[in-house]
Amino acid sequence: MVREQYLTTTDESGSLAPITEYFYMIGIYGWRKRCLYLFVLLLLIILVVNFALTIWILRVMWFNTEGMGYLQVNADGLRLEGESDFLFPLYAQEIDSREDSALLVHSSENVTLNTRNANGDVIGSVSVGPSQAEGFGQHFNISSNHDENVFYADANGAVVGKGKLRVTGPEGAFFEHSVRTPLLKAVLNKELRLESPTRSLSMDAPKGIHVKALAGNVDVTARFDIHLHSTAGLVILDAESVRLPTLPVGEARTSGDSQGMYNTYEVCVCPSGKFFISRAGVSSTCSERQDC
């Protein structure tokens, strides 16, 4: 409230003129004043609640000068201690574990690692799901700690190991089609078996096939026939003894066998390649048999 006073000068008689006062009411009164106070009080309450929520978030998220809880921010990047859940994709240039622990990536659905180019297009991906693992890219390479290739695959084919292929298991390695390799060798103190349960087994080589056993036997078993064929060369069986224990005994062309007076036999070969044994005589009796 402001008061204004107006004083007149004295008149000729020397007496003061009467004083005239005017009062003007300036300010907010009534219900407007109560609304203003209520609004200020509401703002103060909101400020206190926001400050309390900020303190609560800082305590819950463990904010500190180095980062947030187990998440530390340093010059090399971010360091995370313990287990953490990521609800959305994670973008990182490199992910390393501690020296004394392994890096475990776990997901209830699948784990997918993508590589993108400058345009954001996916150029390589590895996805591990609950039932299968998939990957695509220009090539796939697995190396050992000594930078030796363990597995390499590209559009031209796949290479396992450094000059060798080893598959361990009760059934060994199973191939549906042909296999090309310069050497097949068994593990030390283990036997090497080539088997085709329902089909034929064929081995072809342009310069020869060498089957060698340093210790033990070489067994070749077939349900029907065994063919040893050389287009330009010889079939050599190099051993101290070669045994054919189940060769049939040839039958004589005539009922009488005048030359079969020795209890020894000779091995006969027909022009077709068939083997049989004949009771030995003074001279060869192969021509007298009718098995060819």
Rank of each mutant, 00 (worst) to 15 (best):
A158E: 05
G120E: 02
P182K: 02
I142L: 12
A133F: 06
A205Y: 00
F140Q: 03
G135E: 00
Q132T: 13
A205G: 07
Y152M: 01
S125R: 10
V187E: 10
L113S: 07
G124W: 03
G163H: 02
E191N: 12
T115R: 12
D204H: 12
N119L: 09
Q132V: 15
I123S: 01
D204A: 08
V211R: 02
R180N: 15
Q138H: 15
L188C: 12
E171Q: 13
S127F: 06
F136L: 05
F151V: 03
D154E: 06
F151R: 01
T181G: 08
T115F: 12
S202L: 13
N145H: 15
P170L: 04
K185T: 11
G157S: 03
A158C: 04
D121K: 07
P130E: 06
A215Y: 15
L214G: 15
A213G: 10
N217D: 13
N145R: 10
V159Y: 07
A153L: 07
D219P: 03
A153F: 06
F140E: 01
L184Q: 00
V159L: 07
I209A: 02
E195F: 10
L165K: 06
R199L: 09
E109G: 12
K162Q: 12
Y152E: 04
S202V: 10
G169T: 02
H146S: 13
R166I: 06
I209M: 03
S143P: 01
F174H: 14
N156Y: 07
D204S: 15
G161I: 00
R199P: 04
